[in-house]
Computed example of a mutant assay.
Amino acid sequence: MKQLNTKPAEALPGSHFIRHAARAIVTKDQEILLLYTARYDDYTLPGGGVDEGEDMEAALSRELLEETGAKSVTQIKPYGIYEEFQRWHKPEFDNVHIISHCFIVEICGHFTAPQMEAYEQANGMRPVWMPIQDAIAHNRDTLANSDKKGQSVQRELTILENIAKDIMKLNLG
């Protein structure tokens, strides 16, 4: 898989653990499926943490069902990896080393209602289809100007810029 970071991830001081995440790149026509989170005013790829003993593709399908209502995920192809360190607000560790595995996928059939976790609902998360350049512009603005921005906005901006360069141009050509 391609390394998506523009520069290597730098460890933060203190202890950390590794968390693997699976993230989905789903496109249709000239749009991409993203999650908008009102609390952080940003757009992110659907996906999340891989549970202990869970297969990466199973985690990807589970996360897509929970966050977007996608029932049938097919054609899963590796795209790239983004690594980062973030602060961790639990007593056993100071930081988390997140390794995001991004996959290009297709969704077959209809979507059902998302089954988001309580904290996702509380944060105002909802799935949206939109032009990728609109999401990139929005996340750039959030990163530069918002006091609401979360820790993930730089990751998502970098990944979306890679997708726009590598994948979306193929869909538009």
Rank of each mutant, 00 (worst) to 15 (best):
G150F: 12
W88T: 12
W88K: 14
N95G: 07
A135G: 04
H89Y: 12
I99K: 11
A118D: 09
A164W: 03
D134M: 08
E161N: 05
Q86A: 12
V73N: 09
C108S: 13
H138Y: 11
W88S: 15
V128K: 15
S61P: 00
K71V: 09
T74N: 07
I104E: 12
R62A: 03
K149C: 12
Y82C: 13
A113K: 14
I107W: 00
S61L: 04
V73Q: 08
Q75Y: 11
M116G: 02
R87Y: 10
Y79A: 04
C108A: 15
T112P: 00
P127E: 13
I76M: 07
E83R: 03
T142R: 13
I132M: 01
A122M: 05
Y119A: 15
M116L: 11
N139S: 01
E84L: 03
G69Q: 03
N162T: 06
A144Y: 10
N162Y: 02
H97C: 07
E156N: 10
F111Q: 14
C102G: 02
V153I: 15
R87H: 13
V73G: 08
V153Y: 05
P91D: 09
Y79P: 00
A118M: 14
E63L: 11
R155P: 06
A144I: 14
G80Q: 06
Q86D: 02
A113H: 10
P78W: 05
E63M: 09
A135W: 09
E57G: 08
N139L: 00
I163Q: 04
I136Q: 03
F93H: 11
L65S: 12
A113C: 07
L64M: 09
E92F: 10
A59V: 12
Q121H: 07
Q115K: 10
E83L: 01
M116E: 08
C108E: 10
Q151P: 07
M130R: 09
A122L: 06
P127K: 15
Y82W: 04
P91S: 12
E117K: 15
W88R: 13
S146K: 04
P131C: 03
P78H: 10
E92R: 14
F111I: 11
N123A: 15
W129H: 04
D55V: 00
K71C: 09
F85G: 00
W88I: 08
P78G: 14
D141G: 03
Y119W: 14
G124K: 02
Q75N: 13
L157T: 14
D147E: 07
I159P: 10
E67M: 03
V153T: 15
W88D: 15
R87A: 14
H89W: 12
D134G: 02
R87M: 12
I107R: 00
Q154H: 06
A137S: 03
E84Y: 01
S100D: 05
I163L: 04
D55C: 06
P78V: 15
Y79I: 02
I99C: 04
T68C: 14
D55T: 00
T74P: 05
E156Y: 11
V128L: 15
L157S: 08
E57I: 12
L160V: 06
Y79V: 02
A137N: 05
Y82F: 13
D147H: 01
Q151G: 08
Q151E: 14
H89E: 08
E161W: 07
Q86K: 15
R140H: 03
D94E: 10
A113F: 06
E83C: 04
K90D: 06
